[in-house]
Design a protein around this nucleic acid. Sequence first.
DNA 1: GACATTTCGGACAATCAGGTCCGTATTTTT
DNA 2: AAAAATACGGACCTGATTGTCCGAAATGTC
Lengths: 144, 144
Amino acid sequence: MFSRACQYAIRAAVLIALEGRNKRRMSLVEIAERTGSPRAFTAKVLQQLARAGILESTKGPNGGFDLPPAKAKKVKLSMVVKAIDGDQVYRGCGMGLPYCNPKKPCPLHDHFQEVRDELRDMLEGTDLHTLSLGLEKGKAFLKR
Amino acid sequence: MFSRACQYAIRAAVLIALEGRNKRRMSLVEIAERTGSPRAFTAKVLQQLARAGILESTKGPNGGFDLPPAKAKKVKLSMVVKAIDGDQVYRGCGMGLPYCNPKKPCPLHDHFQEVRDELRDMLEGTDLHTLSLGLEKGKAFLKR
DNA sequence: GACATTTCGGACAATCAGGTCCGTATTTTT
DNA sequence: AAAAATACGGACCTGATTGTCCGAAATGTC
Ligand code: FES
Ligand code: FES
């Protein structure tokens, strides 16, 4: 469904949103640790998110990545996915035709469009702040 | 969403089901042509489907791949997808945790499970015969 | 039996995704 | 000013996916 990189991005982003509520800034090392993601690779992914304007990064001692709650409420999951994987996953044709075109559809179109649209709605309707709430009190987990 | 190989598999399978209704057997060359897929690679994919028992293959002159309507009605899309990509796409965790486990869920679980289950239902509820019907009279297309 | 047609399967090549390493730039602390 | 901590970015490695090629095996036709 989502690429490895994108999955790391989501995990990291939710975690950063969580700590952002305590006004904490998170270092790469801590993020990689708590999301169970490879450190160097996660760095690349976070840089992409920073460049996309999804989160802030600061260099130097006590630097790291952060995302204040106000912004976390505005950042939808779709933005994270799009920044890493593009929008092919929730806009593309299920059978791999160049673009999904309802005027010249693949045989799967009608069936596929429904679930793809629900995916899109879900991604566009879910923000990082909301997801971070689920992380409190051991209700949800970022690694196992 | 689905791998390239899996998309070729679906296109080919639907086409074979279509011609199966005319008791026709299709050669690799014709399949590749009409689905706009690379010939040699499609061969591999079709062999996988044949080995998985999803369609029949016959060597020699007038050989090729075939799928009688009776069987096409029983072959669900989920079987094709599973044979090529495995079932991770409609069973796995959206954030990449080893297995989706509602007892120890990722923050996205509740949201994700819904659309993933709809995808599963769609794949398990759609058979190749039904899809091939859509292909008649230029209502749907396998390539553009 | 010879030949043509077709799938089968292994070896290979190219491209891409996932991942590491390391030096550089920037900022804070001392 | 020096040192330490941190993100940045490029080069590189590795494995998977995508794709090609070609000989072998099977089967129908003459
Ligand atoms: S054309 Fe294939 S999903 Fe719309
Ligand atoms: S645990 Fe992540 S989707 Fe179920």
